[in-house]
Amino acid sequence: MIATVAPSSAAPPDERPLVTVRGLSFHRGDRAIFQNIDLDIPRGKVTAIMGPSGTGKTTLLRLIGGQLRPDAGRIEVDGACVHELGRRELYQLRKRMSMLFQSGALFTDLSVFDNVAFPLREHTRLPENLIRTMVLMKLEAVGLRGARSLMPSELSGGMARRAALARAIALDPTMIMYDEPFSGQDPITMGVLIKLIRTLNDALGLTSIIVSHDVKETASIADYIYLISDGSVVDHGTPPALERSSSTWVEQFLHALPDGPMSFHYPAPPYAQDLSLDEEPSLD
């Protein structure tokens, strides 16, 4: 049972996107990860960035968070160009954004309670009794109030991710980026995480960016989806709109079809040449 979170106070709606990416290019060595891509992340919505493994989805989150610098283009978060900020300004901006890492990235030498209290102790001068109350509220929201004394090594994968989520919302951020939140989770935990992400987004008035290749789960809570592959945005739209897309690539990805524009094989020289044969071997 997921606890409800009190809605944040109403503010005049801001129609501008929270994150805008324009002409983004990024390379790792000679390999182009992104080539001149544009995308907008609307405020208050759950936006999914999906694509096959290795297409740079996590890299995109790191670029938005300012952990990587683009080779070309511009990434703005709430009007601030992330890669042009100095370290102090970037850290100020990061206090308003949060990220849930694929591994959870809990501090292994701290208990669940201390992990959630960590950002509060680092960035506020609140008395310890108030920090305790706030931490218990965050843990209650993710259903782990009773697990506050456990160490990260004592948590299951799903619990670790929920504890990390409690830590991610500790400072009441404007935006949360989720890196593969559903990967490796059992169906029940996945259902809990899906509901939590949606509930927290709506109740706290957050902007959520989910990077994932779990199509069904992500599409069930996303308001808008960007599909990326081979360094560019293949298609984007609401989940129903993408369902109706005529693109064969979109159809192959959304319906997990083994055959289609996406090749199963990593680029390689001809098989026969690699095996030093005169003709292509048959699989029959």
């Binding site: 790191r62 968070g65 952990q67 850290y91 100020q92 990061r94 206090k95 954004m97 949060s98 990220m99 890492f101 694929q102 591994s103 990235a105 809990l106 501090f107 292994t108 960590f118 950002p119 680092e122 960035h123 990390a164 830590r167 400072l171």
Partner: peptide, 12 residues
């Protein structure tokens, strides 16, 4: 285990 990256993303 991305603990350092998490710290940076928490502005620490």
């Amino acid at each position: 285990t991305e603990q350092l990256a998490a710290m940076q993303m928490m502005a620490v």
